[in-house]
Computed example of a mutant assay.
Amino acid sequence: MRRSYAVQENIVLPGDTNMHNTMFGGLLMKHIDETAAISARRHSKCPVVTASNDGVHFHRPIQNDDIVKLESFVCSVGRTSMEVFIKISTEQSHTGDVELAAISYLTFVALGDDGKPTEVPLPVPDSDEEKLVHQDRATRKEMRLKKREETNALINSLSLSQS
């Protein structure tokens, strides 16, 4: 898993915040997707596409002038898919205090030279944190598959007409 580790750090500037002086969620999601994609590419050694985002689970708001740090690694794989864990923390620039702000899981699919899904290697957890995240992979996969079934049923019931 260490081979797939990626990190991105940014200072939250006034233009990155909403009327509550907290970071735009969409901007954070962009950073999450970028960092997770780097982990997936490092692990698979292939181009990747985002298959799903299980959501961003906030623990505390990210404020203007915080330094936001995103750390990611591949924590589980299927045959061609990779689950990537993202840990988002903040550092207050004037005190140096660091706090956990959010976590997220994304799924990516590795693509071969033909543009079709290709097999990926198994990850090996090294650190205690990697082992902790890795251990609940089956539960997350089951929840993800159930959500996909629900989403597909809804999509198949929706109309594209504007009436």
Rank of each mutant, 00 (worst) to 15 (best):
F58T: 07
H31E: 13
L27C: 02
T17I: 08
A40E: 09
F24I: 11
H57F: 14
H31S: 02
I38W: 10
D66R: 04
D66M: 11
V49G: 05
D16R: 01
F24G: 05
A37I: 05
A36H: 03
P47H: 13
H57W: 09
V48G: 04
F58V: 07
D54W: 01
Q63R: 14
V56S: 09
A36W: 06
V48C: 09
I62Y: 07
D33Q: 07
T35F: 02
D16K: 03
A40T: 13
G25K: 13
D54S: 11
C46E: 15
A40W: 03
A40R: 08
I62G: 06
A36I: 05
T17Q: 09
I38Q: 02
M29E: 04
M19W: 15
T17A: 08
D65V: 08
A37D: 09
F24H: 14
E34F: 10
Q63Y: 14
S39W: 05
S44P: 08
R42V: 01
D65E: 14
G55D: 04
N64P: 00
I62T: 03
I38M: 11
H59T: 03
D16C: 01
T22P: 11
N21T: 07
T17V: 12
F58P: 08
M29A: 14
K45P: 00
I38Y: 03
V48A: 05
M19H: 15
A37S: 15
P47R: 10
M29N: 14
D16M: 11
V68M: 06
S52E: 00
R60E: 13
K30R: 13
H59P: 00
I62V: 15
V48F: 05
V56D: 01
L28G: 02
S52G: 04
F24M: 12
L28Y: 04
N21H: 15
G26N: 12
Q63M: 11
N53V: 12
D33F: 03
D66W: 13
D65Y: 15
T35W: 04
D16Y: 08
A37F: 09
G55H: 10
D33S: 07
D54P: 00
A51L: 10
H31F: 13
S52Y: 06
R60K: 15
S44R: 03
I62W: 01
D66F: 10
R42H: 10
H59K: 13
K30P: 05
V68L: 10
A37Q: 05
N53F: 03
K45G: 13
M23C: 06
D54Q: 13
D33V: 08
R60M: 08
T22Y: 06
R41L: 02
G25M: 10
H57R: 13
Q63E: 12
V68H: 12
N21S: 15
T17G: 06
P61M: 10
S39A: 15
K45A: 14
V49F: 15
P61T: 12
L27W: 08
P61C: 14
M23P: 03
H20A: 07
R42T: 01
A51T: 04
N21M: 12
M19E: 11
M23W: 01
M23A: 12
